[in-house]
Amino acid sequence: MLQIQQASVFFEGGGGRLVHALDRVSVDIAENSIVVALGASGCGKSTLLNAIAGFMPLSEGAILLDGVPVTRPGADRGVVFQKDALLPWRNVVDNVALGLEYAGIGRRERRERARAILRLVHLADFAEAEPHQLSGGMRQRVGLARALATDPKVLLMDEPFGALDSLTREQMQALLIEIWAKTAKQIFFITHSIEEAILLGTTVLVMSPRPGRVVERRELDYVRRLAGGDTVDAIRAEPGFVRLHEDLRRVLHAGDAAGRLQ
């Protein structure tokens, strides 16, 4: 269980301007749930993820993982970055095995385990490939496999599919749901796509900028239905989905406009 309690972040922006990036945000991310933070750029969603990852301290509040305060980056919180951040001097399997290497696991065993994870993301045939030989979607799958390899308690995903074309993006969403159904990880996912938020979140937090705060919160079950075999096309055609999409869009725009006026 990941608990974010009254988290606030202030930092100094360009020209000594005070940025109120996060304003008393409280969220619980329970086992087997996907919490999606949805918002325009500048709404504090990345700041929140960076704080959970341990890249950035909080000004106020606390982040607890199973009751223990988070202070620095660690293998209990795997991160999938917007840009894949793979190491170009290692082939795919050794990139995936990096965290296992840090944990002191022998070469043979860690490569074996990395191969097993690569099967999970359907990249078993590319274990020996170099990162530069892969497409954007494949690189993101390697990034996902690398984050999963150390078996973290929480998976933090920072707009991981934002740079992909829409077709690849849908495939990646399906893959994530498949993996989530198999591993039951707690996932914190950032996106600026309303549809992605609705399809992937068990909880959707709509965030608005200046200061970054949660303005709307919805508990959804589309992702469980997708994991259970429903198709995206069927869900997209439902009136409930369409209405929700409209609602969230309105909240998003209202929040953004309010933020701009301040």
């Binding site: 341990g54 970055f81 951040a85 840090y102 150390t150």
Partner: peptide, 17 residues
């Protein structure tokens, strides 16, 4: 790139690693 270093830190790497 800061991202590569952050990625390594979230995989549990020590400073030396």
């Amino acid at each position: 790139s800061a991202e590569r270093i952050n990625a390594a830190l979230t995989l549990g790497g020590t400073r030396l690693q």
